[in-house]
């Protein structure tokens, strides 16, 4: 498991990182925690001449808890998402989901930015961010722009981000008081991607549901969310089952995945509802 050769860059700020990306075009790729990228490089499924390490860029770090918005730096590790007290109070769903990601070793290094930028349908955080209606902030040669998480994913490994853009921060509206949240995930073992996972927020007459690893992008369903907002759990599940499009793999055939998707969603709804008031 030896990757092909590459040049290693370690810029100190966002502007220089973008500069390196511009200079080398699609020969260059940023690396955050490396826990999705390095396995692909070792399998030689990803080969690039230049790796741009984001670890030294301070601007990409830190968790800010505001009254209405939480802002996560792209380089915040998944471990920090679990151990940050303020975050757990503001949006408990993030911690609950992060605890279901990979294993402690991976989470010490893997970042939230890498997880959402990666575009792998198996990643948990894209669905989570869609449920939370997060916004991704991107910086590129032409400046900065924002893209809603719900608009970001186009197909497996294809996102709205341009090659020369860097995802810098994620901003998330703090759900109002009384909103119940839950993340439910079935996996084969610790460190496994989801067979099916559901992120649910419900309360105050509103709801949002998203699911993971059941299509080539995360699936946030407006009609499922609306049905749940109206208290129609079966309608919500039916709408979600309509929206997902799982494929057979080692985790099981399509029929099984659809069944488990419904079970995970129902369980998440039940738990979220029990937490709403």
């Amino acid at each position: 498991m030896i990757p092909a050769g590459f040049e290693y860059h370690r810029p100190g700020d966002i502007a220089s990182a973008i500069g390196i990306l511009q200079e080398h075009g699609d020969e260059a790729r940023v690396i955050a925690g490396g826990h999705s990228l390095i396995p692909m490089m070792k399998l030689r499924m990803a080969e690039m001449g230049h790796l741009v390490d984001l670890q030294a860029i301070e601007e990409l770090k830190g968790i800010e808890i505001g009254a209405d918005t939480v802002s996560l730096g792209a380089m915040v590790t998944q471990h920090e998402l679990i151990t940050h007290d303020g975050l757990a109070t503001a949006i408990p769903l993030i911690r609950e989901a992060a605890l279901q990601v990979a294993d402690p070793q991976v989470r010490y290094v893997g970042t939230v930015g890498g997880n959402v930028a990666n575009g792998d349908p198996g990643n948990d955080m894209p669905g989570l961010m869609q449920c939370l209606n997060a916004t991704f902030e991107l910086s590129g040669p032409d400046g900065r722009r924002s893209v809603a998480a719900r608009e970001f994913y186009e197909a497996a490994y294809f996102t709205a981000r341009d090659d020369e853009e860097i995802l810098t921060r994620i901003s998330i509206p703090v759900p109002g008081a009384g909103v119940g949240q839950a993340y439910e995930k079935q996996k084969r073992k610790i460190g496994d991607y989801a067979t099916a996972a559901a992120a649910v927020m419900v309360g105050n007459g509103q709801a949002s549901v998203a699911m993971t690893n059941l299509a080539d992008t995360p699936v946030w369903s407006e009609s499922a969310s609306n049905a749940l907002a109206d208290g129609d759990v079966s309608g919500c599940v039916a709408a979600m089952l309509d929206a997902i499009d799982p494929v057979a793999d080692n985790r099981g055939p399509v029929e099984f995945k659809k069944h488990v998707a419904a079970v995970m969603l129902r369980r998440a709804i039940e738990r979220a509802q029990s937490r709403a008031d």
């Binding site: 985790r251 099984f256 069944h259 488990v260």
Partner: peptide, 16 residues
Amino acid sequence: HDHWRIWKIANGLGMH
């Protein structure tokens, strides 16, 4: 007996 195969047993026995 991984998850889906156990599920398949239950499914085949009409337990769903």
